[in-house]
Simulated scan of single mutants.
Amino acid sequence: MSTLIPTIKNGNKRNHDYNLASLPSLPSWFDDFLGKSFGNEFMSNFNTGITLPAVNVIDGANEFVVEMAVPGLDKSDFDINVDNNLLSIGVEKETEQNEDTENYTRREFGYSSFKRTFSIPESVDTDKISASYKDGIMKIMLPKRDEAKKKPLKNIKIS
């Protein structure tokens, strides 16, 4: 049976004959260095961007449902597309805070984004895909074609 399959985008797959697993990656080395060198006071506001949200995929009798917990966003922040049997869910969010007082001006801004991509099985009717966002939960309904829907159990009597 077909299921939604997450695709890897910009993956970290290595095709080398030698083993680099014992060496730390440069980003993890910096994370380790910064995490050990500075206290939590410094790191508390350091990386407050959106992280890659976890996704639930439900295989129902009549449809697949993709659920994603992404609180604090507006419907307009989402970009959901279907292209060549790939479902992509992306978010771009810009924030800006200005604070003016008598002696100084402070301006903080940020930019956060993520993108999740899934392969859509042939059993999905892509023309009828819909989405809703309520209470921080994004739900995308992918209805199955009639021929792919699960048929009810049929009891066959012996004659």
Rank of each mutant, 00 (worst) to 15 (best):
T101G: 09
I58N: 08
F114R: 02
I80E: 00
M141G: 00
I50W: 01
I120W: 08
L87P: 02
N103W: 02
L87C: 01
I137H: 06
F109E: 14
L73N: 02
S44L: 12
N62C: 09
G72F: 01
K139M: 05
L86F: 05
I140P: 03
I89R: 05
K134T: 13
E41S: 14
M138K: 08
M138D: 00
G39H: 08
N45P: 05
K134W: 02
F78M: 10
D125M: 05
Q97N: 11
N98S: 06
R106A: 15
S130E: 14
G72C: 03
S112L: 03
K128S: 09
F114L: 02
D135K: 07
N103F: 07
G39R: 11
V57F: 02
S37A: 15
R107F: 06
S119L: 14
E41F: 11
K36V: 12
E94C: 01
F114E: 00
V55N: 02
N81Q: 11
Q97E: 13
S88Q: 05
F78H: 05
E41G: 15
L142C: 09
Q97V: 08
P71L: 01
V91P: 02
I89W: 07
M141A: 12
Q97F: 08
P121H: 10
E92Q: 12
E92A: 13
V70E: 03
P143L: 02
I120S: 05
S88G: 04
N62K: 13
A54V: 14
E122W: 07
P71V: 08
R106P: 06
P53L: 02
K139Q: 15
N45Y: 10
S76T: 15
K139T: 12
T117V: 13
V70M: 00
F46G: 04
L142R: 12
M138C: 03
E108R: 10
S113K: 07
A131E: 12
K115A: 09
G35E: 10
S37V: 10
N45F: 11
